[in-house]
Design a protein around this nucleic acid. Structure first.
Lengths: 136, 136
DNA sequence: CTTTGTGCAAAGGCTTTGCATGCTT
DNA sequence: AAGCATGCAAAGCCTTTGCACAAAG
């Protein structure tokens, strides 16, 4: 059931995968698979949409990308340290800022293990109204 | 654009709406529109799925419910919790535990205002694997 | 009586999947 | 040569929407 593959075959090096990686790394914010596909086509590379979906999902699973869900339900990816920072998204203009919550990690880990939970996935995004939008 | 209705017509009192409200309030965790629809049918009430979707969305907009998105993209609702607590959801068995993150509120508020953000909506749910599921 | 809510079913949008072919190893 | 990766298109899934009827105010 659960993916307990011992050592999955390493991904093959293909032109598409390389281009997709470049496209994602060129982004500074979050982008959906379709956004990335568009960007790539605009950039001259021809890659199938399905491939973009598959590759991004795989990269996210491999921990190379972070994936979040936008309020309207789309999946957005971003290259970022799978490390410890989250995002503050303005739900009016969409502007995104990175934030760090010092101490949160430890706090959560403690509480989680306290409840017997493991493999904690801290999907943790904040949505608010940024200064420009709240002060007309 | 933004819903700045001065005082929209108050919602009418219908049997369906009452039943939907009961169903949602009877839940302790999160439930999708379909979950609630199932529960209701199981409970003997006949309400259209579309009505459940519409009603829950309306209640969420009205601030009577909180809505989050599960990792797999569905919208889940819960009755607005009076206090500041969040949830730890097992992504294998679905079991939900309430957790409190002492100090988080202040932490977030500080950081948010630091970035000029207001009306912070701290939708903050954790998904992990509970003890029973990780230890077969 | 007028207006909003409900039901059913079809449409919509994002994402996944099947299958044949191409390319990596 | 063998097998994963890719492409295309079709299918899937959750959710929304149109329209006619029933119910609330």
């Amino acid at each position: 059931m659960t993916s307990t593959e011992r050592s999955a075959t390493p991904p093959r090096k293909t032109r598409q995968r390389a281009e997709i990686r470049s496209a994602v790394e060129a982004l500074d914010g979050f982008a959906t698979s379709q956004d990335i596909h568009d960007r790539m086509r605009h950039d001259g590379s021809a890659v199938g949409l399905a491939t973009v979906y598959r590759t991004l999902a795989a990269m996210a699973t491999a921990g190379e990308l972070d994936a979040i869900r936008t309020p309207d339900g789309q999946v957005a990816y971003r290259t970022c340290s799978p490390g410890h920072h989250h995002h503050l998204v303005c739900r009016t203009c969409g502007r995104t800022e990175e934030i760090t919550l010092p101490g949160l990690e430890a706090m959560v880990r403690t509480i989680a293990s306290d409840h017997g939970f493991g493999e904690l996935d801290h999907e943790l995004e904040f949505f608010g109204i940024c200064g420009s939008c709240s002060r007309p």
